[in-house]
Nucleic acid binder design. Sequence first.
RNA 1: GCACUCGUAGCUCAAUUGGAUAGAGCGUCUGACUACGGAUCAGAAGGUUAGGGGUUCGACUCCCUUCGAGUGCACCA
Length: 642
Amino acid sequence: MDFIIDAAVKAIKHLYQIDVAPAAIGLQETRKEFDGQITIVTFPFTKFSRKGPEQTGTEIGEYLLSELKEVAAFNVVKGFLNISLNDEYWIGQLYNEILPDSFAVAKPNGQKVMVEYSSPNTNKPLHLGHVRNNLLGFSVAQILAAAGYEVIKTNLVNDRGIHICKSMLAWQKFGNGETPESTGMKGDHLVGKYYVLFEKELRVQLAPILDRIYEKNDLSLFKEGQKVKIEALLNSIDKLKVKKQTTPEANTKAIDELNDKIGADQDKIKEIAKGATQLMIETQQMLQQWEAGDAVVMDLWRTMNGWVYAGFAETYKQMGVDFDKYYYESNTYLLGKDIIEEGLEKGVFFKKEDGSVWIDLTADGLDEKLVLRSDGTSVYITQDMGTAQLKYNDYHMDKSIYVVGNEQDYHFKVLFLILNKLGKAGADGLFHLSYGMVDLPSGKMKSREGTVVDADDLMAEMETTAKEQTEAMGKVDGFSEEYKLQLYHTIGMGALKYFLLKVDPKKRLLFDPNESVDFQGHTGPFIQYTHARIKSVLSRADYNAGIKTDIAALDGVERDLIVLLTQFPTVIQDAANGYSPAIVANYVYELAKTYNKFYHEKSILQAEDETLKQFRLQLSASSAKVISQGMALLGIDVPERM
RNA sequence: GCACUCGUAGCUCAAUUGGAUAGAGCGUCUGACUACGGAUCAGAAGGUUAGGGGUUCGACUCCCUUCGAGUGCACCA
């Protein structure tokens, strides 16, 4: 559409003697209720023309009509100049742009981008939240690649730390030597089982300790500093309880708030008290042994992580995601200390009396943030600084995307700010793709309350539902068993992936496990069905992509379809710029819907003459191609038959 | 308490980043060719865009404010 923008710039120069930037010409699609395909908003130019928006629009319109052979007509409604391009132009678009294999294949833009996603902990299986993360990360990587970037997909595996030790300890104590082989369980689920067992046992051990705190006021188990904290919390709780009693019962809101605060304080006490359980003491010891490289612990760690990796590999395969590079925290958790030195020298960080190192971000509207403990060990953000440096050293990428939930917004704000202040190469290209949590109707998923939706279970259920739906429609007669299995997977995953990706990543997402994901309407299977139907028509016809037919005029739906198809490359760029698969998802749906309308209104195989038939076949084939490519950007396959 | 994010039809989501009479799907109701696949298509009903104020030729979009929801505020990761 650049030629219209250029012409509009010339029109304004010619008519009003003003130079406007091409970007100032806001082209948009003409809304369905008006004639035309392209619209220019003329309000911004009235200050140059010193005329009303209608007259300005008319003047520009007349200029375009006389200067551009592609412009067939125009009309002006208020400040909107609606332009109709002639059918010859649109038909030319189909043959010269859309039909060739080069359509929507971006030239390499010479830029490298890293997309880090998934990044699981190795102590339990993946759940629905991870599914959103994985699908988003994979799709964004596909979109960026289609937009011309060289993409590196990475997975930063959190394979060490206290949570893995919990699973390890529980297995040691209660496992009786169980293995994935001996139980037939998937490795990640087996390890997760022991994590749950750990938490269960921990609660048992915690009860008497809490009893001593609340009932007997006995704090002898705790160190001085902890005692002070607990006493302060107990005090706070007492005050809140008094306040609660003096609050009228009718004021339910105030009561709820007080209860929340009491609950929060009690949780804090619980956290401290956990540290006094035998189980946590042993877990801490195990972590120290791990850090010291104790042979037995290391061996167990390697074994159990191995189980988990085998399990994850299966889940990733089902999900259809993959990675170019794995980073492991066991290798990176000590990184970042040299950056601390560097920051101190540059005066970006400062050291407190106890030896801890901080950065003052109050000038940027944030807080003071600890970057190194007083004992000289790293914290989370120290590692991340080091890992960012490591990644950059490995790839020298222009951009680096972190696909991480929005609960870590603050962390990444701080991390990027620090790297910027340190003047690190690549710091400008850092981006946190922050996505919303997946909520259940009951609220947030909580592993402790057993309300998590397991990724493997979910995918299996989707396949089962796909099978039931397909069989109920009696459409699988004559399909081989092998093809059917493949098909159920394609449809089930298509429904799930589309459901999760059609929503703007930033927004939180509601998932109701009791209400199965739809297969009709604005869904993946709807789009897959459209594709299969086109393929069915094509296979019945002697379709030839090469023949250029001589169509004189287009009908409304046909033109709409071509207009939509021409937008595909722009959609890819927009989605890449916004890191949003939702843009692609909504576009492909719009395309499928428009195709279905065309399909119902126009006969293809029984077209009036052979020329028209070939043309409609070409239009159909183009639609199938774009649907298939668009869905591939979402990581969704489209079947030939379903 | 402080900070950030969000609030659009009964439900789940759009709205070309400040543009036209706010659009889809599900659900509800009505209808569709003896032709290419009915997981489809056509139509109806459904809205004070949470409330109020402001900026603008123009506001779902930007600013202020009230209400409501979520998240974050560890020498955890």
